[in-house]
C-alpha cells in the first residue's frame, strides 16, 4: 500500500450506483479513496460513502455561467476532475465507463498530462505503477497497460470487482472547492434522462443479463419473464432495436456488458453483438438454429424455441427461489 490518493467520480450525486461502489472498492485497494461530485450529495449518499470508507467528498463549486444540467457536460465534469486532482495532489482518477464519462476522462487526462486507460476490467498496482487490465477483441485477448505518467485516469467497466463495504463505517465530510470552467463551446439545448424500469437493474451494471434478438419475432415477453425470475437486466441485439422491438442494444457500439451470466435468446451471435457481451463469465444461448454462431462461445446452450424454453426455465427458477 502506498500513500496514493485516488479520486472517484460521483456524478450525479443523488445516488451511488453499483458501478461507483465497485470503483470505491478498487480505489481503497490502491490508496486513500475520496469522491468528487458536482452537486451536493444527499444524506443517503453520504451514508453509503461512509459505509465504503470514504471520509472526504470534494464538491466542485461551479461558476454561475454553468447552469442546471450543463454541470453534466463532459467539459464541465473534466474541469472539476482536473481541479480536484490539482487540489488534492491525487495520483489516480477512476470513473465509470459510460460514453459521457469517457469524454470527461479524456478531457481531464488531456488537461493534466495524464495517462489514460479506457474500459479497464481491473486496476492494480504493479511495482508502484498503476496497471489497467482489459479484455479486447470481443473478449478474446487480455491486455495489461501500465500508466507511465504521474497521474493516471482510468474508466472502469462494471462488474470489475464485487463491491466491499468497510468493516466499520466512517463519517463523511463534504469539502467544497472552486472549479474554474473555461467558457463552454457547446450549448446544451435539452437533456432528458430516461427513467429506469423500476425493479430491474440497469443493463450496464447487472450481474445477470437476458437479451433477445431476431428470434423473439418482436415478442420480448418470454425474455422479460426470465429476466424478472432471475432479477436480471434486459437487453437486445442491434437488429431487434432497429426493428423497434426494444430500445437498448448490447454490442460493441451499444452497451458493453460483462455480467456473471449472459443469456442470449434468439440471437445468432454476429461479431457486433459478440463484441458487446463476450467478456461475460458464463454465456448461455437459446436458439432454434443448431448452427447459430453464438453456440461456439457458449458454456451452455439449448436448441429450441425460446417461447417454450424461457417460460419453462423461469418457472423452475421461481420455484427454486421460493
Amino acid at each position: 500500500m502506498t500513500n496514493r490518493t485516488v479520486l472517484v467520480l460521483l456524478d450525479p450525486a443523488t445516488e451511488v450506483r453499483t458501478s461507483v461502489l465497485e470503483l470505491l472498492t478498487i480505489a481503497r485497494s490502491l490508496g486513500r479513496a475520496e469522491a468528487v461530485t458536482l452537486e451536493a450529495p444527499t444524506v443517503e449518499v453520504l451514508a453509503q460513502l461512509g459505509a465504503y470508507g470514504i471520509e472526504t467528498v470534494h464538491q466542485a463549486e461551479l461558476p454561475a455561467a454553468v447552469r442546471g444540467d450543463e454541470r453534466h457536460l463532459p467539459a464541465v465534469v473534466a474541469a472539476a476532475l482536473a481541479a480536484a486532482v490539482r487540489r488534492t495532489d491525487a495520483d489516480v482518477v477512476l470513473v465509470p465507463t459510460s460514453f459521457a464519462a469517457k469524454e470527461a476522462a479524456a478531457l481531464a487526462a488531456h488537461a493534466l498530462g495524464a495517462g489514460l486507460v479506457i474500459d479497464a476490467a481491473g486496476v492494480h498496482d504493479e511495482d508502484g505503477r498503476i496497471v489497467g487490465t482489459k479484455r479486447v477483441f470481443a473478449g478474446s485477448w487480455d491486455t495489461a497497460c501500465a500508466v507511465t505518467t504521474d497521474v493516471a485516469v482510468l474508466t472502469v467497466r462494471s462488474n470489475a470487482v464485487v463491491p466491499q463495504p468497510v468493516e466499520t463505517a466512517v463519517s463523511t465530510e463534504v469539502e467544497g472547492f472552486t472549479a474554474e470552467v473555461p467558457e463552454l463551446p457547446v450549448t446544451l439545448v435539452s437533456r432528458t434522462v430516461k427513467p429506469r424500469t423500476s425493479g430491474r437493474p440497469s443493463l450496464e451494471e447487472a450481474a445477470v443479463v437476458v437479451a433477445g434478438g431476431r428470434g423473439t419475432h418482436g415478442d420480448f415477453g418470454p425474455v422479460e419473464d426470465l429476466a424478472d425470475a432471475l432479477g436480471a437486466a434486459v437487453g437486445a441485439s442491434r437488429d431487434a432495436v432497429f426493428e423497434g422491438w426494444f430500445d437498448t442494444y448490447i454490442g460493441q457500439t451499444g452497451v458493453t456488458v460483462a455480467p456473471r451470466v449472459y443469456i442470449g435468446a434468439g440471437i445468432s451471435g454476429a461479431p457486433h453483438h459478440r463484441g458487446g457481451m463476450q467478456a461475460a463469465q458464463v454465456i448461455v444461448a437459446v436458439n432454434s438454429d443448431p448452427e447459430a454462431p453464438i453456440f461456439e462461445i457458449s458454456d451452455f446452450a439449448v436448441v429450441g424455441d425460446l417461447a417454450d424454453v424461457l417460460p419453462q426455465a423461469a418457472e423452475v427458477i421461481r420455484a427454486h427461489k421460493a
Binding site: 460514453f99 450549448t187 430516461k194
Partner: peptide
C-alpha cells in the same frame, strides 16, 4: 447515450 438524450449545438 447512457440512458440520456441530449440536444447539443
Amino acid at each position: 447515450a447512457d440512458d440520456v438524450t441530449e440536444e447539443l449545438s
